[in-house]
Simulated scan of single mutants.
Amino acid sequence: MIFTALFALRLDGTVHWSFWTVFIPIWFWKFMVVIGATIGSYVWWRYPHFRLEGEAYVHYKAMLISLALHLILLMFELLVCDKLDSGRHLWILVFIPLIFISIVSIAVCIWAVKHDRSFELELFCSVNILQFIFLALRLDGFISWSWEVVFVPLWILMCLSLVGVLYTIIFAGILLRAPEVNPQQRRTSFNSALGYTFLVIPILIFQGM
């Protein structure tokens, strides 16, 4: 949220900081990811008995996958920052790490499903590969489509997400009226519907603006 506010202020000219300064929240986030992975790896190798606990290996592998994806994202963010500050790269080159991570994320999503792991970031990247390509080509001027056309892949994705939100709301309403459903299931379903609503609707409003 801090980065979004700083980035908007910088684009509007309200602040005149370097983009490297504006991106400080991103750098801090990535620093914390690396620190967390380092500590996790240290514990993993320093205390071998932890490896015998249930799905410890799966958890460790998931951490390494997450670290790798974040490092690739860091490469993209560094290129974006350099592009905004110097303008010496084509946007298509800047987006190469993001396109690469979108392809890799497909395999990561499959792995996550098999091992019952969450994969929200990976799913977002994998389904938006076409959007990333269109955006880079439009920013470089290789295509002259209107922005409405450029964002068609994202519109399709958001429409599907809206259908999912409506489904969760209807499902939560059914559970609230079903007497045989226990309160915990009702609460979980209601919270899920509420969470998806507050996630998708603001994004739709932002995209429309």
Rank of each mutant, 00 (worst) to 15 (best):
W44D: 05
I96V: 15
V58T: 07
F119Q: 03
F76W: 05
T38P: 08
C109E: 02
L98A: 10
V58Q: 01
D140Y: 06
P153Y: 02
S161T: 00
E122M: 15
C81M: 10
L6P: 02
M1T: 05
N191Y: 08
S189A: 15
S144D: 08
D85R: 09
E77V: 04
V163H: 08
F132I: 10
I169F: 13
T4E: 13
S102V: 08
C109S: 06
E53V: 15
S118C: 07
V58W: 00
F206Y: 12
L176T: 00
P202V: 01
V113T: 04
M209A: 12
L157V: 09
W20T: 03
L6Q: 05
I39Q: 08
T14M: 13
N182D: 14
A5D: 12
W20N: 04
L64I: 13
A8K: 15
E122N: 14
T38K: 07
R117A: 07
Q184F: 10
G141M: 07
I170W: 12
A37G: 06
F23T: 06
R51V: 07
F119V: 05
M158Q: 09
I2T: 12
R10Q: 13
R187L: 13
L175I: 02
D140I: 03
Y60V: 04
M158A: 07
F76Q: 01
I65T: 05
I99H: 08
F132D: 01
F134T: 00
I35V: 14
V58E: 02
A68G: 14
A62C: 13
S18N: 09
L71W: 04
F19G: 00
I170L: 10
I133L: 14
V152G: 04
M63R: 02
G36Y: 11
L154I: 01
S66C: 12
H59F: 15
T188L: 11
A193D: 04
D116Y: 11
L6K: 11
S66Q: 07
G141A: 06
V80H: 04
E120T: 11
I101G: 02
P97Q: 00
F100N: 00
G36K: 07
